[in-house]
Simulated assay, not measured.
Amino acid sequence: MTTGRPIACVLGVVIRDGEILLIRRANAPDRGKWGFPGGKIERGETVLAAAAREVAEETGIATEAVAVLTAVDVFEKDQAGRLQRHFVLIAVRCRWIAGEPIAADDALEAGWWPIDRFAELDLSVDVEAVARGAILAG
């Protein structure tokens, strides 16, 4: 399925007590890999509202989305190398309010991970760089 325009998505970056909230993705792109909760921005929804909604849908965690951190391009290609979809993933810093992660919606697993344990995980594109940027941003 080829789409003509980039697809706008959010990533909810939640840090609590030195750990970062990650999910193992159930769907493409990056099925089976670990990354931030996230998904497509709905029509009429702000970037911040989309990030808080996606975190809640995929993990059950309540957050307050506070700031855009960065954006990452992800290009999904077919076996012949032809571009099928272009995602623009907007990483949003979210403040934890309440709850413990329970995998739901598009997540196979969800949990808190210390940044120094990222090497143990099969990560989605740019997860470690975005996480380190979020930590530096405070």
Rank of each mutant, 00 (worst) to 15 (best):
D30W: 15
A65Y: 09
I41Y: 07
A28L: 09
E76P: 10
A67E: 15
Q79G: 11
A71K: 15
L48I: 02
L22W: 06
E42W: 13
R82Q: 10
T70G: 08
E54Q: 08
L22H: 03
V55F: 07
F75P: 08
I41W: 07
D73Y: 13
L83Q: 06
I61K: 01
R24V: 01
A51D: 03
T70F: 10
A52T: 00
G35C: 13
E64Y: 06
V47S: 11
L69I: 14
E19I: 13
Q84T: 13
V55I: 05
G60W: 04
I20N: 05
G32Q: 07
G35D: 07
A50L: 03
K77M: 14
R43Y: 12
R24A: 00
R31I: 01
A51W: 09
A26G: 05
G38P: 03
E64H: 08
V72W: 08
E19W: 10
V68R: 14
G44D: 09
A28E: 05
K77A: 12
E57V: 00
V68D: 07
R24I: 01
V66Y: 08
A80F: 14
V72F: 14
L22S: 01
W34Y: 03
A26M: 05
D73R: 14
R24F: 02
L69Y: 10
E42L: 12
R43Q: 09
P37E: 01
A56S: 03
A71G: 13
A67R: 13
L21I: 02
D30F: 14
A65I: 12
L83W: 12
V74F: 07
R82A: 13
R85Y: 11
V74P: 03
E76R: 15
R43F: 11
L69G: 10
R85G: 08
I20L: 15
